[in-house]
Design a protein around this nucleic acid. Sequence first.
DNA 1: AGCGTAGGCCAACACCTGTTGACTCCGCCA
DNA 2: TGGCGGAGTCAACAGGTGTTGGCCTACGCT
Lengths: 205, 205
Amino acid sequence: MSENRQPPRRSDGTRAAILRAARERFAADGYERATIRAIAADANIDPSMVMRYYGNKERLFAAAAEFDLRLPALTGVHPDQASELLVGHFLERWEGDETLMALLRAGVTNPAAAERMREIFAAQLVPVAERLSPDRPQVRAGLVASQILGLALCRYVLRLPPIVAMERADVVAWTAPAVRHYLTGSVTETAEVGLQVAGDAGQVD
Amino acid sequence: MSENRQPPRRSDGTRAAILRAARERFAADGYERATIRAIAADANIDPSMVMRYYGNKERLFAAAAEFDLRLPALTGVHPDQASELLVGHFLERWEGDETLMALLRAGVTNPAAAERMREIFAAQLVPVAERLSPDRPQVRAGLVASQILGLALCRYVLRLPPIVAMERADVVAWTAPAVRHYLTGSVTETAEVGLQVAGDAGQVD
DNA sequence: AGCGTAGGCCAACACCTGTTGACTCCGCCA
DNA sequence: TGGCGGAGTCAACAGGTGTTGGCCTACGCT
């Protein structure tokens, strides 16, 4: 936010092409199988240009995996609607931008990519959970992440047939209640008693 | 189940050592970063032995990724208890056997590994869902998989701090209601109305 | 018009990968 | 005791990887 004072350079087009190709390859192949040579070929330039502009593969990935979830604020929204909006927004974001796919595919085997996912989680999802419940928002955000990332994993990466076949609206309808439970529901402490999902958004003690 | 008529061979120990080392490496590094040389070194043998006994890397992985979830039948169990048992059993299974970690780490970038996960899903999880609800059991099983794999992803792979910090009992207490919703809950069809998670195991129309 | 410099390409490096084939060694059976 | 087959080792292959440095070219300023 402070160093984009540089004037537009002649190579900006190439830089962008590299970044676009990198995101595509990282998304399709993961970190190790996405080679600099393949990325350079996609961008129609020489592999050495990638090195010149991004230093090394790790920094190229860091640049390609910059991501903003653009989550809505959701302050004052009813939890039911909030969780629906959240799931729907996430699916849209996933399908419209391959950065998330790149992050997941790479994050499973590359520590830096995993760290980036933790950063995005902490900086972008936790605040939303905080706005919806003052009680253990990090845990709530983590549970939401588990459901939402698991959904993306099964639908877009592992491609489990029944999940792939679902309409997006059905996916939202099924998973939103679970997300709502995580965002605003309560839990009987050590769970010996039969659990239940409270019928309304009962806050926790 | 039909061709283990072979007598015990002198090399069985080595074969087992290779398989153990392979599981470890695939679990820790994923498919591409787990090299045959590293696996052989762990097993204290020459890389060519791996080839002799398993043909190639792909078949080695197939052998190492054989897995049985050993899910309990859960027939006639109350849905609340069933989902708790399911989540608890899965966490235990995950922590006690690195095969699942290998499958997830590899399945994200390797098509054969992803296919193996789909097989395990269809052969081992769907039947359980079928026993708990006759209504769209594949979809229900898929949703359960999304929650359960997402949990494993966040807790064991991405290591999101709030999820890692939770006690296992708390994980079960939080996620079991969502799993129960997937296994026996209903969904208002296109979800314009506010959703709710039914308080009891109301079957679907 | 001349020139500095940034953009771009080429060829090579050192290393690592899966995989192969020839070789040695040991234990078992005739 | 001889030999036969399986267990295991060694060295090499062909190809692919990230990365480097030198070279050429052409734009844009003066």
